[in-house]
Amino acid sequence: MPTVVLKPGKERRLVAGHCWVYAGEIASISAEAKDGDAVEILDHRKRCLGVGLLNRKSQITVRRFSTQKEELNKDFFRRRLQAAAAYRPPSEARRLVFSEADLLPGFILDQFGDCLVLQALTLGIDQRKTLLAELARELFHPKVIIERSDVPTRKLEGLDETKGVLWGESDGHLLVNVGGVRFELNLIEDQKTGFFLDQADNYTEVARHCGGKRVLDCFSYHGGFALYAARAGANRVEAVEISDTAVARARQNADRNGLAGKIEFICANAFDTLKKYDAEKRQFDLIILDPPTFTRTKQNVDDAVRGYKEINLRALKMLPPGGLLATFTCSHHIGAELLRAVVVDAAADARKTVRLVKSLTQAPDHPILPAVPETEYLKGFLLQVM
């Protein structure tokens, strides 16, 4: 097996449990090694640190799959898939494999009924996606497998974005039940792999507080939080989403769940709506802020913080004593402590005191490895104005 030898002192992250090797940490690579190959990772004293997949085109040049020296063959990947599935309870909609968090860096596999959605985020996984699709058919017996490798990060691996049906026949459309709410999905065109599975538990948790309340759901997309709030008996629900096609789908989802007329869907920029409602002195009992990521790089964190501060400030100003704010960030670069600091700053400017009701995070089928902080990306707080 070809080898990658690290510079002195550069093994510490791997020893601590991380699985990435950066280009600047490498002293030498075997001449025969090709991009996509399995390589043995050695420290500067030639002690084995495990086996990973190589890609010189990426700044993350090796991603480790095992701490042992072993072949990354079909049996290896079968064991990894079996272990990932065994960790998760059966569900109609679930994440089956979450990349580094399941010791399969670069590979995502989601299940929606009898459909599987696969993402190949790295060169090594892309070269093995046919094998992985075969194993997914063997283990999970889907009727169709769809690829959603249409993510910009593939360019960092020297790969083009791609999507479509890998196996079987489908136009991507299906209905799925998530926590008792039925959603229409388009697994080929909708965001991410077709649904925000990471928020599934938070939909239910926030809905517990919505009975009889005036609820504002900002950045609503297909109506996730709004649908759960209306089903939980909210007195009034407004859902704000900038995409007209997403609003149309959200309305269909409301009709499908017998919630027609119980949610007012507003096609508008959530920043503008929050500013307008603040100026109008509107009041709500519960406001949800679930924006898309405001930054994908460390360089843009300051701009992102200003965005989070603005929406949280305007939301807090519209909450009376006892009112609740469910606020989220899905950027890895905005940690829980930074989000907390943003909320504290916004509350001070709004002249409100808030208490933490509950910290919120990604669903358990998106596990977090403490040694790999990149696996923790969804952070949220449920706060009450005092």
Rank of each mutant, 00 (worst) to 15 (best):
K7T: 07
T245W: 14
F328W: 00
Y377H: 05
A33P: 00
L382H: 06
E138A: 08
I311K: 06
S331Q: 03
M1C: 08
G211W: 15
D278S: 15
K46M: 14
N257V: 02
L383E: 13
Y377W: 01
C48T: 15
E70T: 12
P370K: 12
L72R: 08
V51A: 05
R340C: 15
G180E: 00
A84W: 02
A371F: 10
R182T: 08
Q127Y: 13
Q384V: 13
K7M: 07
A268S: 07
M318Y: 01
G335I: 05
K379E: 03
F77N: 04
L96G: 00
G335C: 10
E32G: 09
R88L: 00
R182Y: 05
V305K: 10
K163M: 07
R80I: 01
K69L: 12
A268T: 03
Y87R: 14
V178T: 01
V344M: 15
V354C: 08
L289K: 12
R314D: 07
F112C: 05
E376Y: 14
D244P: 15
A239S: 12
P321V: 11
V247C: 12
D285R: 07
L319H: 00
F65K: 07
G52Q: 03
L96M: 01
N269M: 02
L123C: 09
H173D: 13
A304D: 02
S359I: 10
P2A: 08
T204P: 10
L319D: 01
R214M: 04
T295A: 05
V5D: 13
E376S: 14
A136W: 05
K213N: 05
H44L: 12
L274Y: 04
D171H: 11
S66T: 08
A363C: 09
G113T: 03
I41R: 06
D255V: 14
E100Y: 00
L166N: 03
C210S: 11
P367A: 03
R208C: 11
L216Y: 02
Q252F: 13
K192I: 03
Q191Y: 11
L382T: 07
A254N: 05
G179E: 02
H173Q: 14
R355G: 14
F265A: 01
C218A: 09
E374T: 10
P89E: 02
H332E: 11
V97K: 00
R128V: 09
Y87A: 14
D35H: 04
P142R: 08
K155V: 14
A16W: 13
G24P: 02
N300C: 12
M318F: 00
D285W: 04
E157S: 06
A346Q: 14
K281T: 14
E374L: 09
